[in-house]
């Protein structure tokens, strides 16, 4: 029934669909972590995944760029289509997929390299720059998009690990942006940050949606309400409800969604 709802909604929506997910199942060995998830993620939109801890929202996010491949016991079933192409197809190279679908992690994880090299890492391995001048340009553009250029422009040779937590996370966002992805997946990007850094990152996410489809996993319902246009509520491995953020927070259709957003469960 819900599937129908979503389908009609997608039909109504003028936005282009980026991800088409149908009957997605994820297993960790025998543990059925994601059950029958159907969701359409739109381009140039911020989609928030909310839900209590352990509900599978991060697992589902990681299956969108096949990061689960790095976990040996993990198994993904069902169709996940990116621009109509099945990403789990044997023909798809996960390396190219991940260049298209960038990811930002919960804990800032800058490489033990200079700020410049952190940003230039992706463009270098994908051969995006023909010469040093172009690379410089990409680095500057990415750092500007990561809203951190002004803070680091005088010390591009300093190690990325020497920045503060909030700066590191924005550096990681800039690093992800530098490879020109089409989708940006963010796994609780603000959970290790203080409120000021969180506000900076949220502002950044809002700007990023002009160019990218952004999917953000968050524990904070306020954050989901602030930054996203679409919200998906996960509970115990099921996608309970997926709708416009306004709808979810003001007029939830499912009893469980209402309980969660009002703080009765989770």
């Amino acid at each position: 029934m819900m599937k129908d709802n979503i389908d009609t909604k997608v039909g109504v929506d003028a936005m282009e669909t980026k991800f088409n997910c149908r009957d997605v199942q994820v297993y960790y060995a025998d543990n059925h972590a994601i059950k029958d998830v159907n969701v359409d993620i739109l381009d140039k939109t911020v989609t928030a995944f909310i839900g209590p801890s352990g509900c599978g929202k991060s697992t589902f996010l990681r299956s969108l760029n096949r990061m689960n491949d790095t976990i040996p016991i993990c198994r993904v079933e069902g169709d996940i289509l990116l621009d109509g192409e099945d990403i789990n197809d044997a023909k798809v190279d996960p390396v190219q997929l991940r260049a298209k679908v960038g990811m930002v992690f919960q804990k800032p994880n800058p490489f033990p390299k200079s700020i410049y090299d952190n940003i230039a890492y992706g463009p270098r391995i994908h051969g995006l720059a023909r010469n040093k001048a172009e690379l410089d340009e990409i680095v500057e553009k990415s750092l500007r998009r990561g809203a951190i250029w002004d803070e680091v422009k005088d010390r591009l040779d300093a190690p990325g690990t020497g920045l503060s937590g909030g700066q590191q996370q924005r550096l990681c966002i800039a690093r992800a942006v530098a490879t020109e992805p089409e989708v940006l997946l963010m796994d609780e990007p603000c959970s290790a940050l203080d409120p000021i850094a969180t506000a900076q990152v949220e502002e950044l996410i809002d700007e990023l949606k002009a160019n990218y489809s952004v999917v953000i996993v968050t524990h904070s319902m306020q954050q989901a309400a602030r930054v996203s246009q679409k919200t998906a509520f996960f509970h115990l491995g099921n996608l309970v409800e997926y709708d416009d953020t306004n709808e979810i927070f003001t007029n939830p259709r499912d009893q469980r969604t209402e309980s969660y957003i009002t703080g009765r469960i989770g």
């Binding site: 991940r98 960038g102 994880n109 992800a176």
Partner: peptide, 12 residues
Amino acid sequence: SMRDGSYGLGAT
């Protein structure tokens, strides 16, 4: 997390 960061950028 270092490896994840690199794989997440499409590195082999």
